[in-house]
Amino acid sequence: MLLIHCPYCDETLPELEFAYAGEAHIERPKDPSALSDEEWRDFLFIRTNPKGTHYERWRHVHGCARYFNAARDTVSDKFLTTYRAGEARPDLDRKEAAE
């Protein structure tokens, strides 16, 4: 069972308290009707599904109930970092260099 750091509670807690919520940084278009069928399809269905670092959303559903973002390595299943919804995708190379 993973341990996940909630950036709102600022605590590292068991996976059981959290729910996965799909890929992160996919913003709902401001005016969906302006999108072509292909653009709308891409927004709805097309996901990166990477081998490696995946930016994804989690919800601290049995805690503060907030949605937040995480970078997780899909090979090792390790969380690289978590950050609040709305914050920019972190530059993980720089973060590693700083450590």
Binding site: E27, R28, R57, R59, V61, R66, A85
Partner: peptide
């Protein structure tokens, strides 16, 4: 409720 919270928190904060 989950769906509503999702939109409220992340699309229309």
């Amino acid at each position: 409720l989950t769906m509503m919270e999702d939109y409220l928190q992340t699309e229309w904060p």
